Amino acid sequence: MPKDSATSQIGLNSLGFAKPPSETRVLVAMSGGVDSSVVAAMLAREGYDVVGVTLQLYDHGAALAKKGACCAGRDIHDARRVAEEMGFPHYVLDYENRFQEAVIDEFADAYLAGATPIPCIRCNERVKFRDLLETAKDLEADCMATGHYIQRMGGASAAELHRAADPARDQSYFLFSTTQEQLDYLRFPLGHLKSKDETRALAREFGLIVADKPDSQDICFVPNGSYAAVIEKLRPGAAEPGRIIHMDGRDLGEHRGVIHYTIGQRRGLGVGGGEPFYVVKLDADRREVIVGPKSALSRSLIPVREINWLGDVPFTDGPDGGWQVEVKVRSTRPPRPATIRPISETTAEVELLAAEEGISPGQACVFYDTDGSRVLGGGWIHKG
Rank of each mutant, 00 (worst) to 15 (best):
G257E: 09
G274V: 02
I343H: 13
L183E: 08
A44N: 02
D285W: 10
V280W: 04
I104V: 14
H382P: 05
S172W: 08
I209K: 12
P342F: 02
G270P: 02
A201S: 09
R204S: 05
H148N: 12
T146E: 10
D49Q: 09
G377K: 05
A239T: 05
F188N: 09
G52V: 03
A348Q: 09
V50C: 02
T347L: 06
V325I: 15
G257D: 08
C71V: 09
G272Q: 04
G242W: 02
Q56D: 11
D105I: 03
R286K: 12
P89T: 06
P119K: 00
E46N: 10
P303K: 09
L43K: 03
N308S: 07
T7N: 15
S298Y: 15
D251E: 09
V26M: 11
A296W: 01
D197Q: 13
R80S: 14
G225F: 04
A158V: 09
I121E: 01
G11K: 08
F277V: 07
E134R: 15
E84H: 07
I209H: 11
S22R: 13
R374L: 04
G372W: 11
P167C: 07
A159N: 07
R305H: 10
E349N: 15
P314Y: 10
E345T: 12
G321H: 04
E46Y: 06
A211N: 04
Q324N: 14
A62R: 10
D4A: 11
Q9T: 06
A141E: 07
A338C: 11
G52C: 02
G292C: 07
C220A: 14
E85L: 14
A364K: 04
G16V: 05
H260N: 15
V375N: 10
G147W: 09
V350S: 00
E275Q: 11
G61L: 01
R374W: 04
Y261T: 03
G378K: 11
K128I: 09
A355S: 12
V34E: 02
A354L: 10
E101F: 00
